Amino acid sequence: IDVRFTVNGLDVTVRVRTEEIAERVKELAKNGVDWREIQRIAEELNK
């Protein structure tokens, strides 16, 4: 599942395995978490 969001004007796409992880990623993006941090968290959750 590809999750797309915009952080500080940057369009970011993170690929995740499940809808649940996708929701977590969207939540982080909404809360203004840095995209590199979101990427790292997504990689952890995908394991």
Results as ranks from 00 to 15, higher is better:
Leu10Thr: 12
Val3Ile: 12
Arg40Ala: 11
Lys47Asn: 15
Lys26Ser: 07
Asp2Val: 14
Asp34Gln: 08
Trp35Arg: 04
Asp2Ala: 11
Thr13Val: 15
Arg17Ser: 11
Lys47Arg: 10
Arg4Tyr: 13
Val16Asp: 00
Asp11Cys: 11
Leu10Met: 15
Gly32Ile: 06
Phe5His: 02
Ile21Asp: 07
Val14Phe: 10
Ile21Lys: 01
Glu23Pro: 00
Arg36Val: 15
Asn8Ser: 08
Ala29Lys: 05
Arg40Leu: 11
Thr6Asp: 06
Glu44Met: 07
Asp2Trp: 12
Ala22Val: 04
Lys47Glu: 14
Glu37Lys: 06
Leu10Asp: 08
Trp35Cys: 05
Phe5Ile: 15
Glu44Lys: 06
Asp2Cys: 10
Arg40His: 08
Arg17Gly: 07
Asn31Gly: 08
Asn8Val: 04
Arg40Cys: 10
Glu43Thr: 09
Phe5Lys: 00
Phe5Gly: 01
Ile1Trp: 15
Arg24Asp: 02
Val12Asp: 01
Val3Asp: 01
Ile21Met: 05
Val16Cys: 14
Glu43Phe: 08
Glu43Pro: 01
Asn8Phe: 04
Glu44Pro: 00
Lys47Phe: 12
Leu28Ser: 02
Thr18Trp: 02
Gly9Val: 02
Thr13Asp: 04
Val3Ser: 01
Val7Asn: 05
Glu43Val: 08
Leu10Asn: 10
Ala22Trp: 04
Lys26Asn: 07
Arg40Glu: 08
Asp11Tyr: 12
Glu43Gln: 09
Arg40Gln: 11
Arg36Gly: 12
Glu27Leu: 12
Arg4Gln: 14
Glu44Phe: 09
Thr13Arg: 06
Asn46Val: 02
Val25Trp: 01
Lys26Arg: 15
Asp34His: 13
Arg40Phe: 07
Gly32Leu: 08
Glu44Gly: 04
Asp11Ile: 15
Thr6Glu: 10
Arg36Ile: 14
Val3Glu: 01
Lys30Ile: 12
Leu28Val: 02
Val14Ala: 02
Arg15Asn: 14
Asn46Cys: 03
Val25Pro: 00
Glu19Lys: 12
Glu27Gln: 13
Val12Trp: 08
Asp2Ile: 13
Asp2Ser: 10
Asp2Thr: 13
Glu43Gly: 06
Thr13Gln: 07
Phe5Val: 12
Ile38His: 00
Arg36Asn: 14
Leu28Met: 13
Ile1Pro: 02
Glu37Arg: 04
Thr6Asn: 13
Ala42Cys: 05
Ile1Arg: 06
Ala22Asp: 00
Ile41Gln: 06
Val33Asp: 03
Val7Ile: 12
Val3Tyr: 04
Val3Gly: 00
Ile1His: 08
Glu20Ser: 10
Val33Asn: 05
Glu23Asn: 13
Thr6Cys: 11
Leu10Gln: 13
Ala29Arg: 05
Val12Arg: 07
Val12Pro: 00
Ile38Cys: 02
Asn8Gln: 10
Glu27Asp: 10
